[in-house]
Design a protein around this nucleic acid. Structure first.
Lengths: 220, 220
DNA sequence: ATAGACTTTTAGCCGACACTAAAAAATAAT
DNA sequence: ATTATTTTTTAGTGTCGGCTAAAAGTCTAT
């Protein structure tokens, strides 16, 4: 089995996630923004990933991930998200603190480690941000998810993810009392500005603007 | 605070442990054997570690670790041993499976991660091999430890470490029913060959040769 | 259809960390 | 004390992954 370096793993994960988001080929600039490296470095890496046949690379025309590449990317994502669950559930990290540390942990090479960790965590299907954790074979079970602003009045659900997971936004949510896992009910939608009133865990009502509501995904 | 690379951290740890073992300066060849690299690579690394003042390096005359260097080495050892505890106690790894994985985990950079892990594990003072875990300040509390063959007849204690931690030896111990943490009592010492009979956990007696006994450390 | 803007790639450089081959220093043996 | 042996260092190479500067390709607007 061919091996990828840490850097290659990171690029491949970024490429996978960018292509999932947009469903199109991914540009060098997009990748360089995501990876915080220069476009020149990206070009070089794309050449290498192309040689390893985890991406299809046509110079100047962006990149498509191959089936083989997806397998690698999903393995990395699986590791990252399992570590995130560990950090939040076992070590009491806050949502917005896990990314950096999980990015290091995900590169530890040990199949057995990941199997045991998965088992230890009770085979979680979703990470603390509500994103699905691929299984050993790369299969992802996704649940139907809607942004709050698309839920009908009196509709209920559970917060499972946020689109914008910036530290600032996550802190805002904590502050107003919303959190991943919270059960919510939509009480009112204001016509003229789209702002919304929701009930959290049957005990607290909070208002949010349409923009905020659009950022919060709920499993209905 | 000056930073060390992963490779530098590994070399420094090796140098610290070699100098603790022998209490003398450490030779280039010793280090290259320990690190499984060539002496030429070691020389180069020593020059770098010398520049960073974590070791005192006189060409051709071996190496002494500085106080600053000890701090770094102890931090790395602390991380390594905490991860070993995690792997064995939480993920049910066997003694002889932890080294490789812990060597990767120990390089994850996050002070808070180590603090939380320490707390989560209940502030363990010894790793699964019985070696002491330095605290945040690098202090090590060591316990008096004796090899089994130096314990008097009817003396009791608890197995806390092994000198030879090769996979083969660890498997042998598991097989005969001895393990780290086991409470033992010395029942008999055979005069002419020094072999020893011990009682494990008050329920099982096992025989071992003098050589095996000398390899097992007991806290009395 | 061509100029200008933007994107992407190439070329060349650098630091980290391994290696080999050969030189230099220290140590051991006669 | 000189030679032989071993240890250690230097010199030069290669790979990986970043960078800058400049060239090349693509796209857009007139």
């Amino acid at each position: 089995m061919m091996q990828l370096t840490h850097a290659e793993e990171n690029y491949l994960k970024a490429i996978y996630q960018l292509s999932e988001a947009g469903k199109k080929g991914v540009s060098t600039n997009d990748i360089s923004a995501e990876m915080k490296t220069k476009p020149a470095s990206v070009s070089d890496m794309l050449r290498k990933l192309g040689e390893k046949e985890v991406i299809e690379y046509r110079k100047y025309y962006g990149v498509h991930i191959t089936e083989e590449g997806k397998k690698f990317a999903l393995r990395t994502i699986r590791k990252q998200r399992l570590w995130e669950v560990f950090l939040v559930e076992k070590l009491r990290f806050a949502w917005d603190e896990v990314a950096e540390v999980a990015d290091e942990l995900e590169h530890v090479q040990s199949t057995i480690l990941i199997q045991r960790l998965d088992e230890y965590l009770g085979f979680p299907k979703f990470d603390p941000h509500g994103d699905p954790i691929p299984d050993e074979y790369g299969d992802v079970r996704s649940r139907p998810r809607l942004p709050i602003n698309e839920i009908d009045i009196n509709g209920t659900g559970q917060i499972v993810a946020v689109k914008d997971s910036s530290a600032a936004f996550l802190r805002y949510l904590d502050k107003v009392g919303a959190y991943i896992g919270a059960r919510i009910k939509v009480l009112e939608k204001v016509e003229f500005d789209g702002s919304i009133e929701i009930l959290v865990d049957n005990k607290k009502t909070i208002f949010m603007s349409k923009d905020v509501a659009a950022n919060i995904l709920v499993m209905v």
